[in-house]
């Protein structure tokens, strides 16, 4: 990991910025800060940050608008950090290009983990044919998944789902995003399909399907594959 990577924090609360500065710099990141949406846009353009942490409740512009504007040209990860905790807000942010979403109050350890996942994803742009999660290996080119060395019997849809989640491991995928990706536009809203396949997949990939460690439910939002 590049130690001089810059993280831009757009948040109007000085206390939060202070906390993030301490936490992130002690973890080897460089910090730049902005207190308003406007300053945030300028900072994003001038400092070329490797990642942006964005608050939604900004004094001048709504965070979602800033998110959309930055996303017009900015390719790197954006993590939304907000007090808004309703499912609608979260889904809306994710749909508008946020890579991840964390509600305040948050645990700094959790934030750091999310930042790492996001940064790694940014780097893993070239295909890595084999993805490993503990005893599970997903072999993308061969359309095979192995658990404890044994090949799992997966239907093609199950594999597609597994592959999608594994490629985005550590990141929340909304129900709609998954449905669109695997089944196509016509299936958006048919969450019962997703539930069935998630349940089936869990039985095959999890050590204890009743206590999933890999395929995690994000209440009311979607799923996250544990990295």
């Amino acid at each position: 990991m590049n130690l001089t990577e810059t993280i831009l924090v757009i948040d109007d609360e000085v206390q939060i910025r202070r906390l993030l500065e301490i936490t992130l710099s002690s973890n080897g990141f460089k910090i730049s800060e902005a207190g308003t949406g406007k300053d945030g846009l300028i900072a994003a353009a001038t400092h070329h940050p490797a990642l942006i942490i964005l608050d939604l409740g900004l004094p001048d512009t709504d965070g979602i608008e800033i998110l959309k504007k930055i996303r017009e040209w900015y390719q790197k990860p954006i993590i939304v950090l907000s007090v808004r905790n309703s499912e609608d807000d979260i889904i809306n942010a994710l749909d508008n290009g946020a890579n991840d979403y964390l509600t305040k109050p948050f645990r700094t350890g959790e934030l750091l983990a999310r930042i790492r996942v996001a940064l790694r994803q940014g780097q893993e742009s070239e295909d890595n044919p084999n993805l490993t999660f503990g005893t599970l290996i997903v072999d993308l080119p061969n359309h095979i998944a192995r658990k404890n060395g044994e090949i799992l019997k997966l239907t093609s849809t199950e594999f597609s789902l597994l592959a999608l989640l594994a490629k985005n491991s550590g990141r929340v995928l909304t129900h709609q995003a998954i449905l669109k990706e695997i089944w196509g536009f016509g299936y958006v809203g048919q969450t019962q399909y997703l539930r069935v396949f998630v349940a089936q997949l869990r039985k095959k990939i999890e050590d204890d399907p009743a206590k999933p460690r890999l395929l995690i439910t994000e209440s009311g939002i979607g799923y996250r594959f544990h990295e």
Binding site: E87, T191, R195, V198, A210, K211, P212, T217, S219, G220
Partner: peptide
């Protein structure tokens, strides 16, 4: 309520997950 399909296993699992510290002294029977 935003009604959507839900797997009850998932629901219970999610709750017991977030309450794992509090649940540690008990034996949970689902």
């Amino acid at each position: 309520p935003r009604l959507d399909w839900c797997d009850i296993h998932d629901l219970i699992n999610k709750v017991s997950e977030s309450l794992q510290d509090e649940l540690r002294p008990f034996s949970l029977d689902v």
